[in-house]
Simulated assay, not measured.
Amino acid sequence: MMIMFLALAAAALPQTAPQALPQTAPAASPAPAAAPKYTLDTPIETLAANEAAKAVLNADLPGLLEIPQYEMIKGLSLTQLQPYSGGKLTDELLAKTAADLAKIP
């Protein structure tokens, strides 16, 4: 009975468009930090093509770009190359290289 009364009462009320709430601009959120342009997952040939990234490779991994197998490995990333490096690409060395690559604008 009460539900029927409420339905009748609601039908008797004048129907008006709902009032829009005032719009406020959303609070500005801080811009996300830009992802590094070059990482350990960037192909070696891409790193070698950029002067700053090439300088990082030459400083942190001297001789890598001059090895006879360069043509075979240039499409790999440093992360992909690590298991085939015979222990030469240590986690510490790659961490330093990653940090240096991340500084490149």
Score class of each variant (00 low, 15 high):
Leu78Gln: 07
Ile67Glu: 10
Ala99Lys: 12
Ile44Gly: 06
Pro18Asn: 14
Leu65Asp: 09
Asn58Gly: 01
Glu71Arg: 12
Leu8Thr: 12
Asn58Val: 10
Lys74Ile: 05
Lys54Ser: 14
Leu6Ser: 03
Ala28Gln: 13
Thr79Asp: 09
Leu93Val: 15
Leu76His: 10
Leu57Val: 11
Ile3Pro: 00
Phe5Gly: 10
Leu101Ala: 06
Ala48Gly: 06
Thr46Pro: 01
Leu21Asn: 12
Ala27Tyr: 01
Met2Ala: 15
Leu21Tyr: 08
Ile67Cys: 05
Thr90His: 06
Ala31Leu: 12
Ala49Gly: 10
Ala59Gln: 13
Thr90Tyr: 05
Ala9Glu: 06
Pro62Tyr: 07
Gln23Asn: 10
Ile104Thr: 05
Glu45Pro: 00
Leu40Ile: 10
Ile3Trp: 02
Leu47Phe: 04
Pro105Val: 01
Glu45Ile: 12
Thr79Pro: 04
Ser77Phe: 03
Pro18Gly: 14
Ala53Trp: 03
Glu92Val: 11
Leu13Gly: 08
Leu89Thr: 09
Met1Trp: 05
Leu47Trp: 03
Leu89Ala: 07
Lys103Thr: 10
Ala11Cys: 12
Gly63Met: 08
Leu57Ile: 14
Asn58Thr: 13
Glu66Val: 11
Ala31His: 01
Met1Thr: 11
Ala48Gln: 13
Pro83Lys: 07
Ala25Gln: 13
Gln23Leu: 15
Ala95Lys: 13
Tyr84Asp: 10
Leu8Glu: 06
Ile104Glu: 04
Thr90Lys: 03
Asp100Pro: 03
Gln82Ser: 13
Ile73Met: 07
Tyr38Phe: 15
Gln69Pro: 00
Met72Arg: 14
Ile3Asn: 10
Pro43Gly: 05
Thr90Met: 04
Ala95Phe: 02
Ala17Ile: 11
Tyr84Phe: 15
Ala49Thr: 07
Leu65Tyr: 07
Ala55Phe: 01
Pro32Lys: 08
Ser77Val: 06
Met1Gly: 15
Thr46Gly: 02
Leu93Ser: 09
Ala49His: 05
Pro105His: 02
Phe5Ser: 11
Leu40Glu: 06
Ala11Met: 13
Ala28Val: 14
Met2Ile: 14
Leu93Gly: 11
Gln23Pro: 04
Ala17Pro: 09
Ala53Phe: 05
